[in-house]
Amino acid sequence: MPLARLQRSVESLGAFLVQSAQSSGFGLQLLASAGAALPHAASPRRIRDILNLLYTYSFASLVVVLVVSLFTGLILALNFLITVESLGQEHLVGRIVAVSMVREMGPLMTAVILSASIGCSIAAEIGTMRVTEEIDALEIMSISPVRFLVLPRLIALLVLGPMMTVFSGVIGILGGAAISYFQYAVSWESFKNDAIELLKLKDIFTGLLKSVVFGATIAIVGCTQGLQTRGGATGVGRSTRRSVVVSFLLFLILGYYITWAFYK
């Protein structure tokens, strides 16, 4: 009996691996064909689509990014200040908050929010189009789903990712500065000087690079899951869930490698 159960779990693990490999292959292919279709993004119709998406996506995520980034900054500052209070190193709070916000937390938190709010809605939207035969209809009309659906979403997220990440960094740093000032009497001036002194161009570049990579990840994973949807409403639910889980995993893995590449 246990043997049968073991076999079953090995089988399902195998199926999971095969499925992941297929999805990754599909995703990479999608990224390549979206890249190849890039010149088509210059048409007026596509530009309008992209602007519309940017507008919708910004509003869908702005408030959440604001709140989450503010609290991320607060938490970073507070943790540091609590830890070093007895050592009298409070003046170093600026660098800690600035560097972590810019290099790690800003890009990651933004990506998590964008994935949960926009990535999964892309998966759901395209997944629904798949199960209601709208994707097939596009293909029959010789309208490439890559050009028509994937490309605008990819570009919108390539713009939105860095934009929101910068916003998130600024808000987080302001939050950290505020709590340092109000609760630990670290002056604005010293916070700012410490932050600027330590924050290197490299940190900013790393953060922005991550935000671009994460933006592309969100779009491609969402579209991949959407296009691969099968099996009606349940299938759409499954794709939506998967898009978030897969994106999270990729943020951590890719984020780690980017940091490693720049600082090792």
Partner: peptide, 26 residues
């Protein structure tokens, strides 16, 4: 021309724009 079981219209554009789609895009 292909008529799908449920019409398969894109839901973010109007009926008119849906009909215009194959003409515009191609």
């Amino acid at each position: 021309g292909y008529l799908f079981q449920d019409g398969a219209l894109l839901n973010w554009i109007t009926v008119g724009q849906n009909v215009a789609l194959p003409l515009q895009e191609t």
